[in-house]
Every structure is written in structure tokens, then in C-alpha cells.
């Protein structure tokens, strides 16, 4: 049986910041199309730096990143069209004054014609349930709506792969459920998703793969049920239901 080639391939990727800190150290990972991967690690473990390499915001100093077989270094623009990124701080990502303008920003950059832009903006806003708010100023949206707007802004560019940096941070429970449902719907639609989070229990149940990073290296990689029991040694809190299943009170060492 032949295995399909990975949609995203990271080979021996290393990155050192200008202050000398080694952010990524020989990271090698393959992502299959349609996979939902959760990437966890303590602060400073290299999760965000890795995501930024996957769509060419950072270029490899050593190693390579390939999207659909094409090196990101050789063609960063093609990588950014295929790999959309939702940032941790939605406010920094939203550039349009109104909801509509913000979602149209990406397709306008791709030089699509006006009718196509209109169509893709409508589709993206409908997908995240914000079409009714298309004319609202973006700064009046709630935290959850801003996060969904950020997702719509990326979806309007029709990417195959979505990277999400801490999509659940600073959200109340209803907003969190909306964002999580959005992620699951995107996954059902066949998107490949890579999500970094500190709040593992909100998504781990739905993930096919759990990757643990520590000090810039991948230290665990596998199915969530195989990896999640050993998280605390890497400074990551196990989901409460797993702690309870082991007979431990949640949030105790």
C-alpha cells in the first residue's frame, strides 16, 4: 500500500533568535491532509516559532519546510496562499475597519476580481456565522466574534491548511464553544489543522495527533491517548478527565 505524501513536511528545522536562544532544534514532522494536530508545550518551547515557519513568516536557518511538496523558502507566497494562520491576538490580525473589509483584505491581496472577492467574503462570513455583522465596525465585536472574524479572514483566501495559535485564550465559555465548533466544522470540511494551545482539554478529545515540544525539540508525537498521560513532566497540565481517571484530584501535583 502506498502512503500519500504529507501535505506539510518539516525536515531537520532549526532556528536561533538573534539573542542566541535556540528556538527550534532539529524539528522533523510530517502532517497528513485532513489531520487535526494539537501542538503543546510550556511557554518558550517553540510552538509559535514552528507555526511561523509553516507559512513562511520565518525562514529556516537550517532544514526545510515543504507545503504540498514545494519549499516554503523558494516560494513563500504560494505557501501563504495554502497555509492560513490565525494569530493569538485577534486584534493584531484584524486590519479592516468593518467586518466585511477585514475579510476582503486577503482576497484583495491575491488580486482576485471584485465578484470573486464578494463571493469568497460572503462564504467565509457565513461559515463563521458573522454575515449579519458584515457592516459592523470590527472593533465593537466581542472576543469570540473577533476570533471568528480572524478565522473568516483566513478562510476567505481558501487555504488547505489552517494554523491556529492559542485559539482558546481569553475567551468566555460560550465564545470558546463557538470557536471550538468552528474548528471542528473546518476539520469536517477536510481542512488540515495545526493548533497550539495550553488548554488541551478543550480540543484533545477531537484531535488525531498530539505533539509535545520542549526547548525547541519534539519530545512526544502520537495519538492523544498514548501521549497525554506523560504530559506533566514537560510542564503541561493533563486534561482534568485524565487526571480523574488516574484517581488524582485535578490541578494537584
Amino acid at each position: 500500500m502506498t502512503q500519500t505524501p504529507p501535505i506539510l513536511r518539516v525536515s531537520h528545522l532549526s532556528h536561533r533568535f538573534s539573542d542566541g536562544t535556540l528556538a527550534l532544534d532539529q524539528v522533523t514532522l510530517d502532517f497528513q491532509a485532513g489531520e487535526l494536530t494539537v501542538l503543546v508545550g510550556a511557554n518558550g518551547s517553540g510552538k509559535t516559532t514552528l507555526l511561523r515557519h509553516l507559512n513562511g513568516l520565518l525562514m529556516p536557518q537550517c532544514g526545510d519546510v515543504e507545503v504540498c511538496g514545494v519549499s516554503v523558502q523558494k516560494n513563500p507566497k504560494a505557501a501563504r496562499k495554502r497555509v492560513g494562520m490565525v494569530f493569538q491576538d485577534a486584534d493584531s490580525q484584524i486590519v479592516g475597519e468593518t467586518v466585511y473589509d477585514d475579510v476582503a483584505f486577503g482576497p484583495e491581496n491575491l488580486k482576485l476580481n471584485r465578484d470573486t472577492i464578494e463571493h469568497q467574503v460572503r462564504a467565509a462570513l457565513s461559515t463563521v456565522g458573522l454575515w449579519d455583522m458584515a457592516e459592523k465596525p470590527s472593533y465593537v465585536l466581542s472576543g469570540g466574534q473577533k476570533r471568528r472574524l480572524a478565522i473568516a479572514g483566513v478562510l476567505a483566501m481558501k487555504p488547505e491548511i489552517l494554523l491556529m495559535d492559542e485559539p482558546f485564550s481569553n475567551l468566555d465559555y460560550p465564545s470558546l464553544c463557538q470557536v471550538r465548533d468552528q474548528i471542528l466544522a473546518l476539520h469536517q470540511d477536510g481542512h488540515t489543522l495545526v493548533i497550539t494551545t495550553h488548554e488541551l482539554e478543550k480540543i484533545v478529545h477531537y484531535a488525531q495527533r498530539l505533539v509535545v515540544m520542549e526547548k525547541g525539540r519534539v519530545v512526544r508525537d502520537g495519538a492523544p491517548q498514548d501521549v497525554a498521560h506523560a504530559l506533566e513532566r514537560y510542564g503541561i497540565c493533563s486534561p482534568c478527565f485524565m487526571q480523574a481517571a488516574c484517581g488524582r484530584s485535578p490541578w494537584t501535583p
Partner: peptide
């Protein structure tokens, strides 16, 4: 970074 990510 956000502008770059959206092919500005």
C-alpha cells in the same frame, strides 16, 4: 506578521 500571512 499578520499582513504578511495574508499575502499583503
Amino acid at each position: 506578521a499578520a499582513l504578511q500571512a495574508r499575502c499583503y
